[in-house]
Amino acid sequence: MIDFHTHPLLVQEVVGGDEAMIHATRDVFMIRNRLQPLDTFLLELDVCGVQRAVVMPVDATTAKGTKIWSNEQIARLCSMSDRFIGFASVDPHNPRAAEQLEHDVKTLGLRGLKLSPSLQEFRANDRAKAYPIYEAATALGIPVLVHCGMTWAPRSKSASPMDMEDVAFDFPKLNLVIAHFGWPWVHETAMLLLKYENLFADLSCLYFDAPWEFMRGIFGGRLPLTLIERSLRTKIVFGSDYPRVEIKNMVRAVKELGLSDGALEMIFNKNARYLLGEAEASYK
């Protein structure tokens, strides 16, 4: 099993006493739990049977004056355990962002790109700022995961999954992941997943109630479970948004939805491996 959406913000061995990192975590990303040893992250994976986790930074240098972990720090964490899959982030306001992405992917071994339009203060379909980055990602053959939907940052409008339609259409060879299933725009997300072969979504959405209650309210609630089972099981990857949510609780929530074993295998494993270039697509 692979968790396709984590932020390793609390790992003591990397954060140490770095005040800038602590500020970025507590005051910009708004995670205020105490630091934990790396072992806690690995044990968190163990208790719910997850083998590997995608670990992501956000480069909000222009918008917030900070990186919520740099690409180098992500690479350093990945060097501590082969269970981590490092993604890069670049600042879309930086005219050299595309070059930086190419450099960091090639030299640091990072395997995807994370962008957060609301936190980084840009629009995902901004042709001047974002499209050169997508062109670089297409050439590198890496997936791009974009924060969509509910955000604790201001200007939620910039996190609408509908912005992703332009990107999916204009970059048909680029695999894109709508993070958090775009909640609350879950119908829009489902529509886009049905429509574009290169669009995927992760399940890391939880904004109230227990994970299993929230998940049931969407899948089998607002969206019929048959939509997932029959049409979207090839387009969804598991994600927890750890440490905002414990991985164990999100795994349980997804497993309790009532999906078939085949669909769960795709969501927990196969689709993520496809996006990472490790497996063929579930089917087209």
Partner: peptide, 10 residues
């Protein structure tokens, strides 16, 4: 089971 500002999470 609600958003807790003190933790930044549910």
């Amino acid at each position: 089971r609600r958003y807790l500002d003190i933790d930044g999470r549910i």
